[in-house]
């Protein structure tokens, strides 16, 4: 499966990349929202994982953009903000899953697996 990850902390990003590559996914990553928007249409991922608070464009913008591009691409939102209102807003905008930071990379991998199974 092709996965696009947008996350601005480099080592966290590298961790996710390695963990998901180990599961056999093809991963493309970026450290800012604006770049994610650009890569979306080029890479056409099967799944998007995005942080909310990022430089240049927020994850919620990335989320709305993905859903406009193709509503069937699942989006996992990853954020330090666990408050109800933020989670609700993300789901209203079409998020398929919401993971609160700090998160476990193993858990993330399992959730990705679930989406992979649903797609294939």
């Amino acid at each position: 499966m092709k996965i696009l990850i947008a996350e601005d902390e480099p080592i966290t990003l590298a961790t996710m990349e390695l963990r998901l590559t180990k599961d056999g996914h093809e991963v493309i990553s970026t450290d800012n929202g604006q770049d994610a928007l650009g890569k979306l249409s080029d890479f056409m991922p099967d799944l998007v994982i995005t942080d909310i608070m990022m430089p240049f464009a927020s994850g919620l913008e990335v989320l709305s953009f993905v859903k406009k591009l193709n509503a069937r691409i699942p989006v996992i939102v990853l954020s330090a903000m666990g408050q109800e209102n933020v989670v609700l807003e993300a789901f209203t905008l079409g998020a398929d899953d919401y993971i609160t930071k700090p998160f476990s990379p193993n858990e993330l991998a399992l959730r990705v697996k679930r989406f992979a199974m649903r797609i294939s």
Partner: peptide, 8 residues
Amino acid sequence: YNLLASSA
């Protein structure tokens, strides 16, 4: 500062 972005 992110605390303020989402705090009720």
